[in-house]
Amino acid sequence: MLVWTELSQVPADFGPSVVTLGNFDGVHRGHVAVLTQMVADARRAGVRAVAVTFTPHPAQVHRPDEAPPLLCGDEDRLELLAATGLDAVLLVTYTLAFARQTPEEFVSRWLVEHLAARTVVVGRDVRFGWKNSGDLSTMRALGERFGFDVEVIDDVTPSAGADPAGAEVPPARRWSSTWVRELLERGDVAGAAHVLGRPHRVRGRVVHGDARGRDLGYPTANLAQDATGMVPADGVYAGRLRRVRDAAGAPVPDGAPDRVLPAAVSVGTNPTFDGTQRRVEAYVLDRDDLDLYDQEVVVELVERMRPTLRFDSVEELCVQMARDVEDVRRVLDA
């Protein structure tokens, strides 16, 4: 999949194309359903399939104090978008200057002139241009003017798709990033995985912590505070740690030793030790020989085992940690 971050990177002869717009935070099952159908339609028509998306999220620019936590960073978002079969993604740097374009300026320059859009795929609630002044009727009018079709996608709900794991389908509600955030706020990572179509992930560099885990016999990989991906409610989780880049920044290839490892993941402030900083740290089961410092890893969260607890002694904590490891092992083996 081609990734462009500036219009100048789009080849002059690119197109024709089918284009869709969106933030695609989390690339959940609703996004995937729309994008895979769009890709299939583009293949049949012999044109390219392109998504236009934004970084940072527009809410972070217009309402930084109210912006929701992002489900994933740009790297994960692009990786997940590529899996849908898209030919290209135009990752637009969202600024106030960009937001001041009129709907006509945005469509004519970005969609028509550079992407040669033959079809533009949007939701019924699409808004674009200065102060969100453009809507579906605006897009249709511009389509007639510039010679592209407008395809409207209705909300995709659980009842419209099959659950690959055979899980019970929840009451009809459209797949959405908001739904995933609500689940993660409760620590329901299994429910979030149902909406995402995959385990929720947090990506970051492994940094030095307090070394308490190593002293207790459970050395943990601590993720840096700038890790991407919404951190769920405090607690202990069953999960997996995937090594992405080594300490030198080189990609860790598929099939490399110790690339994907089972882990017990702790999210919280370590209240037993009066901690104040929320952390994500992963103990790789039965391994005390790993040197993960400065490596980039992805922590995938499978199931919440329990909430964070404060223990009266280190001994009580160690007993519970041993139970947690066995509980995590059972979940992952299942």
Rank of each mutant, 00 (worst) to 15 (best):
S8H: 13
V298A: 11
D87I: 01
H28F: 03
V156H: 04
R174K: 15
A192K: 09
S177L: 02
D291E: 09
A99E: 04
G229C: 10
A248Q: 12
L111R: 08
S137P: 03
D210V: 10
P69N: 04
V314A: 13
R48H: 14
A97G: 12
W175P: 01
T5C: 11
P69H: 03
L21R: 06
V325I: 02
D154M: 05
R214F: 10
A42D: 02
E104T: 14
R242W: 00
Q295P: 00
N132G: 13
G204W: 06
A256K: 07
G46Y: 10
P64N: 12
D288R: 11
D154R: 03
P16S: 05
R214P: 00
P253T: 08
V202S: 01
V260H: 04
L86A: 06
D289R: 12
L184R: 09
R279F: 05
A190M: 07
F24M: 07
R109V: 15
A233G: 10
R127E: 10
R109P: 02
L301C: 05
Q37V: 02
R118S: 13
M230C: 05
Q101N: 15
N270C: 06
A116H: 08
R43I: 01
D163Q: 11
V152K: 04
H194P: 00
R287I: 02
L91C: 10
G191M: 06
Q295R: 05
R174Q: 15
V280C: 09
R205N: 12
L71F: 06
D324T: 02
V299Q: 05
D41A: 14
G73N: 13
P64A: 09
R140L: 13
L223P: 12
E300H: 02
L261N: 06
V52Y: 01
I153L: 01
N270Q: 09
E303Y: 06
R198S: 02
T36K: 08
A141I: 01
G204L: 04
S177N: 04
W4Q: 12
V169Q: 14
P69R: 13
G268D: 07
R29A: 07
P103Q: 10
L115C: 06
Q277R: 15
V18Y: 09
E315N: 06
F14N: 08
V47Y: 04
R174W: 10
T276V: 09
V298G: 01
A42E: 02
H114G: 09
A33M: 00
E79P: 00
Y293A: 08
R63G: 01
T220S: 13
G15Y: 07
G73Q: 08
A190H: 04
T269Y: 05
A40G: 10
L70M: 12
D288S: 13
P251Y: 07
P11M: 04
A334L: 11
S137M: 07
S159G: 12
V297R: 00
F106V: 08
P251F: 03
C318L: 08
